[in-house]
Measured scan of single mutants.
Amino acid sequence: EKVLKRMREIKNELLQAQNPSELYLSSKTELQGLIGQLDEVSLEKNPCIREARRRAVIEVQTLITYIDL
């Protein structure tokens, strides 16, 4: 939940920025750090946690791809 919240904050900052190119590098670095945090999530045998992590990774990767474009 914390990762998704921060990812959404970054997305809003990028969309509202007057000059978003200044934010791209720092935002991309922070998003890659969020992916690292998601990699540390213990998936164990809980399919709900596994699915939530998968969705979060996809959302963060989508935003990274947007920045790259």
Rank of each mutant, 00 (worst) to 15 (best):
Leu31Gln: 00
Gln61Val: 02
Gly33Ile: 04
Gly36Lys: 15
Leu25Val: 10
Leu38Ala: 05
Ile67Glu: 03
Asn12Pro: 01
Asn19Trp: 06
Leu15Trp: 04
Asn46Phe: 04
Arg53Asn: 11
Thr29Gly: 09
Arg8Lys: 10
Val3Glu: 00
Gly36Arg: 15
Gln61Leu: 05
Thr29Cys: 11
Arg50Met: 12
Leu31Tyr: 02
Lys28Val: 03
Leu38Arg: 00
Ser21Leu: 06
Glu22Arg: 08
Ala52Arg: 09
Asn12Ala: 13
Arg54His: 09
Ser27Gln: 09
Asn12Leu: 11
Leu69Lys: 15
Asn19Gly: 07
Thr65Phe: 15
Leu38Glu: 05
Glu40Thr: 06
Arg50Phe: 04
Ala52Asp: 13
Ile10Val: 02
Gln32Asn: 09
Ile10Asn: 01
Pro20Met: 06
Glu30Asp: 01
Glu30Lys: 08
Ser21Phe: 12
Pro47Gln: 11
Leu31Pro: 01
Thr29Ser: 11
Ala56Thr: 02
Arg55Ser: 10
Lys11Leu: 02
Glu22Trp: 03
Thr62Val: 02
Leu43Gly: 12
Glu9Ile: 03
Leu15Asn: 15
Leu63Tyr: 00
Glu9Met: 05
Thr29Trp: 08
Ile35Glu: 02
Arg50Ser: 14
Val3Thr: 03
Asp39Val: 08
Thr29Tyr: 05
Ile67Leu: 08
Arg55Leu: 10
Glu40Asp: 13
Glu9Tyr: 06
Gln32His: 06
Tyr24Asn: 02
Leu15Gly: 05
Cys48Gln: 14
Lys45Leu: 13
Lys45Tyr: 06
Glu22Lys: 12
Val57Cys: 11
Val41Gly: 12
Val57Ile: 13
Arg50Tyr: 08
Asn19Met: 06
Gln32Ile: 07
Leu25Thr: 14
Ser26Gly: 07
Pro20Ala: 06
Arg8Ser: 14
Ala52Leu: 10
Gln32Asp: 04
Asn12Asp: 15
Leu43Lys: 14
Tyr66Asp: 13
Glu40His: 04
Gln16Asp: 06
Thr62Asn: 15
Arg54Gln: 10
Arg8Glu: 14
Pro20Leu: 05
Pro20Tyr: 02
Lys28Glu: 00
Gln61Thr: 05
Val57Ala: 10
Lys28Ala: 03
Ser21Val: 13
Arg50Leu: 14
Ile10Pro: 00
Val60Arg: 00
Val60Phe: 09
Pro20Glu: 07
Glu59Pro: 00
Lys11Asp: 00
Gln37Asp: 07
Gln16Met: 14
Leu31Trp: 00
Leu38Asn: 04
